[in-house]
Amino acid sequence: MSVVIDITGLPEEHVVFAPSPLAELSAALHVLSEPAHHPGLHGWTTTTLAGLEPDLAGRLAEADILWRSTRSDILLPGGPRPGGTLAEELDLVDRMEDERYVQAALEINCGGDYGDGGPSPLTDEGARRRALERAAARGPGQLDFVRHLLADPPAVRAWIRRLLEDCDRAFFADTWQRVRGQLAADARHKTELMRRRGLAESLAAASTAITLEEDGRGRRVVVDKLAQGRTTAVDPTVGPGLTLVPTAFGWPHLLVLHARGWRPVIEYPVASRELRAGPGSVELMQRRLEALAHPVRIRLCRSLARAPYTTGELADALGITAPEVSRHLKVLRGAGLLTTRRQGRYVQHQIDVTVVARLGSDFLEAVLR
């Protein structure tokens, strides 16, 4: 599964690496709503939550449908380049028509048809009903918020802007001052890498989950996620462009704005102490979990985790044939879960404890990516 962005014919000068204060604020708000996703930011989260005034904390709880499970497209840059300040980016959001704003605010968190360009809940009764039903499933506070947004979009839009501005005054201005230099330096590095060594290397430097595919059908940016989607960076009604936004608050998430009629945006986490060699592709993680799910292979792993064994020794221990053991070892080896070494005439197999120990965090990173 993956999100595919068609960039056929897109000049590389329209691929922009740049930090976004609005995207970073929304990433920070997500961290405050879901601190368990971001254990490396525990200190910042604890300090920030402790310093929030009760009124601001309550308003954030009302609006967290916009950023809790994922983030609404209104909280990512929508122009050719992100604004230099939060106020500039909020001004761009204010120019959005109500139908577009409301649909973007609700289509991720309250809808299962993201990317399809369906009707606005302001103009379509079916879309309205679905938005309310899905909001109700998230709790009475979220339902009230969505009801108010659908009933009076201008008033709620102004309320959301004030909320974000109050967050800026309360904690984000200081946070942005600390991280903006790192994000700007990362964006400059990726831009220079693209100029000197090409788009493929700059994308790979942003994340190992982002690749460039080129063939006779064109060029595509492919983002490896447990999600399916397609969009284009060369829509003439929107204008050509792909924006890549570094974030200090994003890991382990890798966000992709790929809704129809929007300029695509990828928000990627910058290198930090939290980041390590990732789990590789989602497909590899799935293959490893499937390899371990078989009852015979679980029994094999009990031995292989303790010491190196030959195929014959494993066959004797489990009371099955050597060819059957070989078939199961081939699956485990193909998933990268075994190490093999030769001792004279014998080949010994052993579980790669480091890889297996990482499976839990790899699984979480894959589903949160």
Rank of each mutant, 00 (worst) to 15 (best):
L164G: 05
R157K: 10
Q177S: 14
R188T: 12
L163Y: 01
V156N: 07
A187M: 07
L183R: 09
Q177C: 13
T175Y: 09
C167T: 00
A185F: 07
V179Q: 11
D174A: 15
R178S: 14
W176K: 08
L164Y: 01
L164R: 06
W159F: 09
R188P: 00
A158W: 01
D174I: 06
A185R: 14
R161C: 02
A158F: 03
D186S: 15
R162E: 11
R169G: 03
V179W: 06
F172I: 05
R161L: 02
W176N: 08
A170T: 04
L164P: 08
R169S: 02
R188H: 13
A158N: 07
R180F: 02
A158M: 07
L163C: 03
R162N: 12
C167K: 02
A155P: 09
F172T: 05
A173R: 14
F172Y: 04
C167I: 00
A158H: 10
L164Q: 02
A158S: 12
V156L: 12
Q182R: 15
R180V: 11
V179R: 11
H189D: 15
W159I: 04
I160V: 12
V156E: 11
I160R: 09
D168L: 00
F171C: 05
L164D: 02
F171A: 03
D174C: 11
A173P: 10
A170I: 00
D168E: 10
R180H: 09
L164H: 03
A185Q: 13
Q177G: 15
A187K: 10
L164C: 01
R180T: 10
A173W: 02
L164W: 03
D186P: 03
A158Q: 12
A173V: 06
I160Q: 08
D168Q: 09
A170M: 01
L183S: 07
G181T: 14
R188L: 14
W176T: 05
A187E: 01
R157V: 03
A173Y: 01
E165K: 05
A185L: 11
R180C: 11
G181I: 09
A170F: 04
A185H: 12
I160E: 06
E165F: 00
T175G: 08
A158P: 09
D174V: 11
W176S: 02
L183H: 08
T175R: 15
E165N: 06
